[in-house]
Design a protein around this nucleic acid. Sequence first.
DNA 1: AATTTTATTGTACAAGTGTCCAACAAATAT
DNA 2: ATATTTGTTGGACACTTGTACAATAAAATT
Lengths: 185, 185
Amino acid sequence: MNKNDLRVIKTKKTIYNSLLLLLKTKPLSQIKVTELCKAAEINRGTFYFHYQEIGDVLEELFGEIMRDLEDSYAEPFKKGFTVHKKNLDPDMIKIFHHVKKHEEFYKIVLSEDASMKYYYMFYDVVCRLNMQTKYELAGDDFLTAYSANAMIGLIIKWYRRDFNDSVDEMNHRLFHIVQHSFKKV
Amino acid sequence: MNKNDLRVIKTKKTIYNSLLLLLKTKPLSQIKVTELCKAAEINRGTFYFHYQEIGDVLEELFGEIMRDLEDSYAEPFKKGFTVHKKNLDPDMIKIFHHVKKHEEFYKIVLSEDASMKYYYMFYDVVCRLNMQTKYELAGDDFLTAYSANAMIGLIIKWYRRDFNDSVDEMNHRLFHIVQHSFKKV
DNA sequence: AATTTTATTGTACAAGTGTCCAACAAATAT
DNA sequence: ATATTTGTTGGACACTTGTACAATAAAATT
């Protein structure tokens, strides 16, 4: 299977689009392969030529999102977004921006009926970025896991409030928490 | 459906046993209803009379585990386990004990192909226990989410090392992390 | 002990799954 | 332009799914 073949590109594109459309109407677990193929106007055999199950399509799509997250850390911090409060960590702010930008995706991937697979994809990227960014984590796998998942804990809470909080509010919450944990010794 | 009916009790028991047996041979996602029913020697219709899908059985079982976790916090700390290092939080130690005790279960529930449903069950209990135990979290949902998920981050790391660390080691790691975060201001 | 209630069974059905293969069509390579 | 490669199609297959219903057996109730 050559992913540069025009036929493959076209087929995958229509699968992506159709899946995203279906996901607006029902949860991932309720979408049938037959249904997706009918929507995408492709043969069922073609689907199985590329994927094993519908989750694999989402995995591919979410992989793109993960790449976007890593890219956002590679770039210098966007000038458009100014950090109002001093001591706010611009590295942490990036992730809130990213999640808000892909809100619809995270609603799918963090839903109760999603697979842990996507959580681990996210978790692994956050771990890696944290490790690269914060020198004090270097080498300590457990400390990295601890702090990365703490961050995701905030995002889970955010998700459960349907992302009804601005990026700025999330930033300040994080700032408050970090301050808080330092204050009480 | 009367859960006290002897027939129901017996049926569910054999379903539990058969599922746990099958889970030793293959991941949850690969177990078919037909297969489980054949193993449990019950009619497929009987299964659907009690559950919608195989995941519901695991949810019921994991619910028991969650009750055990909550119970372990209700009890006074077991005398058999002595806290060697001073400043080690006995409340935190309880959770490591609990996870180690139900190691096989957590291996299933934290696996890549498991559903986020179980993660949230765990997350919710850890949040609640944290909130009840640590007065400084009271009221602050985000701080609770942050610290509960951080804890789970450690457990995920532990899981990924196949739980090849003693409860004591995990305790000391947590102690080290908390110290660490206080040190650098 | 007799009666009522209800969980379980067996069967049937439409629909979805996962796989296979020959025929086709649309891409790439010569 | 022609030849070759290969992704796509449609049909077929055994199997699983989810649901429905009447008959049965094993509980609970009186």
